[in-house]
């Protein structure tokens, strides 16, 4: 797997001349594979015991960030949407409050990732790799993942506040949940970074 370098830039995943017939099919396969992985992680996490309902490590976040870095925002959005939809259908939570929260979180994360990629740019492997290229510009998976995790939790809390419990005591819950999101977001970022590194060292 070594895509053309332009595919990593958001909004520039347009086909190069001559490959127009093949591209859609390959992109579909990529989306499907990543979405399947994300759904698997999503469902797996639901089975994990959690001290607080709604608090999960968010490992599917890794897949979203990988999709963004390797294939662009459109692919990441497809993967995120499919994960929420298929995950909820598998778990039987489609259109339930859980689904609404899940969708809100994924939307929040994708919006922030889109803004970050467009405004700041992406440095696929941070500063550690590519010593010859000098310090990476833009956000590495570490920063992307943290931003996505906080946006995910923030959007969920916002929607929960608006729709379910507009109670002032909510702040008690927001602080620890956002802290947990930051911790897990950083962890996801490290995982995404390692995977991208393995991918890069793999012989082409």
């Amino acid at each position: 797997m070594s895509p053309p370098s332009d595919a990593t830039l958001p909004g520039m995943s347009g086909a190069t001349p001559g490959t127009t017939l093949l591209r859609p099919e390959r992109e579909d396969l990529q989306v499907a594979a990543l979405a399947a992985l994300a759904v698997a992680l999503h469902v797996l996490e639901t089975a994990l015991p959690s001290p607080v309902p709604g608090m999960k490590p968010g490992l599917a976040n890794v897949v979203t960030v990988l999709a963004l870095v390797r294939f662009g925002w459109r692919t990441a959005a497809w993967v995120g949407a499919l994960r929420v939809l298929v995950g909820s259908l598998l778990l039987g939570t489609f259109l339930s409050p859980t689904f609404i929260l899940s969708a809100a979180g994924a939307t929040g994360a994708l919006v922030v990732l889109g803004l970050a990629a467009r405004l700041v740019g992406i440095a696929p492997r941070g500063r550690g790799a590519g010593q010859h290229d000098g310090p990476g510009r833009g956000l590495s998976p570490l920063g992307l993942s943290l931003a996505a995790a906080l946006a995910h939790m923030g959007a969920q809390l916002g929607v929960a506040w608006l729709l379910f419990v507009p109670h002032p005591a909510f702040l008690y819950l927001a602080a620890p949940l956002m802290t947990a999101a930051a911790a897990f977001g950083t962890l996801s970022g490290i995982i995404a970074w390692r995977i991208l590194e393995l991918d890069a060292t793999e012989p082409a």
């Binding site: 001290p51 607080v52 608090m55 008690y172 819950l173 602080a175 620890p176 949940l177 802290t179 947990a180 930051a182 911790a183 897990f184 950083t186 962890l187 490290i190």
Partner: peptide, 17 residues
């Protein structure tokens, strides 16, 4: 540092419960 953050989060959650 990640582990410390996770522990802190767990402690805060326990207090919340």
């Amino acid at each position: 540092r990640v582990r410390a953050a996770a522990l802190l989060a767990a402690a805060l959650l326990a207090a919340g419960c």
